[in-house]
Computed example of a mutant assay.
Amino acid sequence: MSFRPGSRIFNNFRPFFRQPLLRRRVGTAAAPGEQSGFAKLWNSPVGPKTVHFWAPIMKWALVLTGASDFTRPAEQLSLTQNFALLCTGAIWTRWCFIIRPKNIFLASVNFCLFIVGAAQVGRILNYQQSLKKAEGQAAKEGKVLEGELKDVAGKAEKAVKS
Rank of each mutant, 00 (worst) to 15 (best):
M1S: 14
M1P: 08
M1C: 09
S2R: 11
F3G: 10
F3R: 11
G6Q: 10
G6K: 05
S7W: 13
S7Y: 13
R8G: 03
F17I: 03
F17Q: 00
F17V: 01
P20V: 02
L21S: 06
R24P: 07
R25P: 01
V26S: 10
A29P: 07
A30L: 14
A31E: 15
A31H: 15
E34W: 14
Q35A: 15
Q35T: 12
G37R: 15
G37C: 02
F38S: 06
F38P: 03
K40G: 12
L41R: 09
L41Q: 11
P45L: 10
G47C: 03
P48V: 08
T50E: 08
V51P: 01
W54L: 06
A55H: 06
I57L: 14
M58K: 11
M58F: 13
K59R: 12
V63I: 05
V63L: 07
T65C: 02
T65L: 13
G66C: 01
S68W: 14
D69C: 05
D69W: 11
P73Q: 03
L79E: 02
Q81D: 09
Q81G: 11
F83A: 09
L86A: 00
L86E: 00
C87H: 02
C87T: 08
C87Y: 03
W95V: 09
I98R: 15
I98V: 15
R100E: 10
K102I: 13
N103F: 09
A107M: 12
S108E: 09
N110Q: 06
N110H: 09
N110C: 05
F111S: 09
C112V: 05
L113G: 02
F114Y: 09
F114M: 07
V116Y: 04
G117Y: 05
G117W: 01
Q120I: 04
G122Y: 03
G122A: 01
R123D: 03
I124H: 00
I124T: 01
I124C: 05
L125W: 00
Y127R: 03
Q128P: 00
Q129Y: 07
S130R: 06
G136D: 10
A139C: 03
A139D: 12
E141W: 06
K143P: 06
V144P: 00
L145W: 09
E146D: 13
E146Y: 10
D151E: 12
G154Y: 11
A156V: 08
S162P: 08
